[in-house]
């Protein structure tokens, strides 16, 4: 993805299996035509439809297995030795 400052035209970048990243000045409206104000300069628009904070992304695409590309046939990562007993993320 390439960045664009607000001095340049707005840009929308699609993330594989994820949201649309929006940079730059643009007006955003909801279903009722009401203006929606993003809380940050760079924001992510939901593309999978599962977000609880639409039109913004909340990471739900990972829960619903949203894919924009066919799943790879082989693992994306290997380990030098067996992975330690599963250590949970927060």
């Amino acid at each position: 993805m390439s960045a664009a400052s607000s001095a340049h035209p707005a840009s929308i970048t699609s993330c594989p299996d994820g949201p649309l990243i929006v940079r730059g000045e643009l007006a955003l409206f909801d279903d009722q035509g009401e203006a929606v104000m993003p809380n940050r300069r760079t924001f992510a628009l939901c593309r999978c439809g599962a977000s609880a904070i639409r039109p913004f992304c909340d990471g739900s695409h990972k829960l619903v297995g949203f894919r924009t590309t066919p799943p790879p046939r082989t693992a994306a990562v290997t380990f030098d030795e067996p992975a330690p007993s599963t250590l949970n993320a927060e």
């Binding site: 993805m1 993330c15 994820g18 949201p19 990243i21 809380n39 940050r40 760079t42 924001f43 992510a44 904070i53 913004f56 992304c57 909340d58 990471g59």
Partner: peptide, 11 residues
């Protein structure tokens, strides 16, 4: 952080 980190994750 729900909203911010969904952006930061990609960046």
């Amino acid at each position: 952080h729900v909203e911010a980190d969904a952006v930061h994750e990609q960046l």
